[in-house]
Design a protein around this nucleic acid. Sequence first.
DNA 1: CTGAAAGCGCTTACAG
DNA 2: CTGAAAGCGCTTACAG
Lengths: 358, 358
Amino acid sequence: MTPQSGRSPVMADVARLAGVSHQTVSRVVNGHPNVRAETTARVQRAIDELGYHRNSTARALVTRRTNVLGVIAFDTTLFGPAQTLAGIERAAREAGYFLSIVSLDDVSPAGVAEAVDYLIQQSVEGCIAIAPQRALVKALASVPGPRPLVAVEGGEGSGLPVVCVDQAQGAHDAVRHLIDLGHRTVHHISGDPEWLEAESRVAGWRRALGEAGATAPEPLVGDWSPRSGYEKGRRLVQRRATGEPVTAVFVANDQMAIGLLRALGEAGIRVPEDISVVGFDDVPEAEFLAPPLTTVAQDFAQVGRVSLRVLLDELGAGERSVAEDAPPGAPPDPAPRLIVPARLRVRQSSGPAPVPHR
Amino acid sequence: MTPQSGRSPVMADVARLAGVSHQTVSRVVNGHPNVRAETTARVQRAIDELGYHRNSTARALVTRRTNVLGVIAFDTTLFGPAQTLAGIERAAREAGYFLSIVSLDDVSPAGVAEAVDYLIQQSVEGCIAIAPQRALVKALASVPGPRPLVAVEGGEGSGLPVVCVDQAQGAHDAVRHLIDLGHRTVHHISGDPEWLEAESRVAGWRRALGEAGATAPEPLVGDWSPRSGYEKGRRLVQRRATGEPVTAVFVANDQMAIGLLRALGEAGIRVPEDISVVGFDDVPEAEFLAPPLTTVAQDFAQVGRVSLRVLLDELGAGERSVAEDAPPGAPPDPAPRLIVPARLRVRQSSGPAPVPHR
DNA sequence: CTGAAAGCGCTTACAG
DNA sequence: CTGAAAGCGCTTACAG
C-alpha cells in the first residue's frame, strides 16, 4: 500500500494511493483540464501525503526538454560578470529554467571546447556566454557547441546574437563631461586590450576627443587590476612632472581608478583640484572613495534579463523553423544585437580644469 | 542508414552504423572492459562520424544519479560568496558534477522554501548552502529540503555539516596586531548582526581585547556597506572630538573600511599616524587604497574545495548507511565541522599608537 | 566478448 | 472524464 521505504515515491505510488491510474496523476500534476474536481482533490491529497515530487529526469527524457540553460563565463568573481550572472540567474528562475554554469580558466580553444563539452553533456537547451574577450568569442563561434548561443558583452562580428552595454557611449559621456569642465584633453588608462569592452571604451574616448577637436594623448594600457591602475598612475605622474599637461584622466574601470587615486595621492597631487578622475562600473565603494568617484554605471540586471529574453526568442525561433513557417529560400533573420545604455554618475573626483600657471 | 536529420544521433544510430548492438556501444562509451579492441575502434569511429553524445537524461533516469549538485546562496555578487561559489564550481567540475545555483532574494522561510523546492525539482543529489545568516541557516535546517546539505560559513548548531573560515581567529589576530603596536584599545565597526560572520568577528575582537586586559568600547554596528562604514566613521570622529581616545579601529570588512577611510580623511585625521585601521577580506583593491589597507585574507578557494569534499563524503556515507555497514543502534556520526584559517596581511594603514599629548 | 530483454518514471496519443 | 499501450534513450543483469 505505502511505497517501499527508502525510495522516494513515484507517480505509480500516488496513483495507487488515490485509486486512479498514473496518467490521471500526470494530468493533475501538469494541470490538464478534463479531470473531475473530486478526482483532482483525491490525487492532490495522495501527493501531499506521500510528499511526491515529479521526477524531472523522466519528464525531460520524454519531453526532450531539460529546462536547463548553460552559462559560460570567464571569471565570475569580477564585478561585471558577477552582476550579469546574477541578473541572468534571476531572469532564468522567473522563466522556469535552471542554470548550469561553467567558468573558464583560460580562453584557449581547448579550454573553451572543454567547457562547451561539459555543457553539451548536460543537455542544455541553449547557452549564454558572458564573453567579453576577443579570443573567447572567436573560440565560441568556431566550436560546434551548444546552440542557440547568445553572447553577452562582445561577440560582434561572430554571427551570434549579442547583448551588451553601450560601452562606447558611456566612455564618450565620461570624456565629454570632462571636456565640458574645461579640460583641453583627457588621458586614458585602458583595460586589458584583449577585452572588447576595453576596446569600446577606448573608441568612445577617442570619439569624444575628436568631436571636441582635442588631440588624444597616447593611452596607457592597463589590465583592469588595481595594481595596473597604480602603475599607470605613476607613469602619468612622471609624464606630468616632465611638463606634459595632465589635468583629466578617464580610467576604464573603477578598480584601476582606485590604484590611480593612490598614485596621485602619493605624489601630492589633489583630486579634482589638480587632476580630475573618472572611472567606469560604479562599484559600491565608488561613492565612498576619497574623493567620491565620478564613474559610469552599467545596468547589469537589465543585461541579464535582456540576454535571457533573446535566448528564449532564439529557442522559439528554432522550433518555428523546424515547423517551416518561413518560406523556403528566405534569408535567415540577422543575429539580433541589443544594446543597454550606460549612465554617467557625476561625483566629486571630477572638477573644472585648473587654471594653467604660465 | 544515416540517422534522420534534425534529430541528434542516439545510441541505436551509432550501433547501426558500427554494426553492433546498442549495448556494445554503451560498453564502449562507459569504458567497460571485455570489448574487443577492434570493436571498440569501429564503435568509436561511428561515434566520431555521427558526433554522438550520450544522452545524460536517459542515463540519469536509469542510474538514478543526476550528477547535479545544488548551491543555495544569498547574494553571489558579494565578495565572499562570489569567491566561495567560484571555488565550489571549480571543485565540482573537477569531480565530475554539474552545479545548479539558486540565489535567494530574501532569507524568509517562504523564500528559502521556494529555493529549496526549485532545487528538489531538479533532482539534485546534494546541496551546499552559502549561508552566512542566522535566519537562513535556521530556515534551511527546518525545511524538509534536499539532503545531504552542507552549510558554508555559519550553520553552527543547526546539526548540518559546516565548513567555514575561522573568523574569530582572524579578528583576534587583527586586534592583537594593533595591541602589539601599542594601542590601548581597539574600536570596532561590526558587520550586519544578522550575519554569523559579524558575530564571530565581534567575538574575536572581544577576546583579543580581554586577553590584553583592555576594555572593549561600545562597537558601532554597520551592515557591511561602504556607506555604513562612512557613517560609523563619522560617528567615531565625533566621539574622538569629545575627547574619547580613538587610536585604532578594526572594521569587519574592507568595504566599510573604505567608507571609514573617507570619513577620517574628510576630518583631516591621518591614517595610520592618528588612527590605525584594519579591515577584513583582502579585496583586490585593499592593497591599493591610500594608504594600503592592513586586512585579513580568507582562502575562499579552499573553502569551496573543502565544502565540496564534505558533501561528497556525506553522499558516500548515505550510500553506505543504506548498505547497513554501521551496527544498528550505533550513534550517527556527529556532523563534521571544518575550519579554514584566516591570515592577517599587514600593510600601511596600521602603525604605532600615537604618543598621547597630555 | 556480444546480444536480447527488462525497466528507470514519466508523457503522449489513442480508445472508450 | 479516465485508462491501457507505447516509447523517450539509456544501463543492468542475464544468456550464450
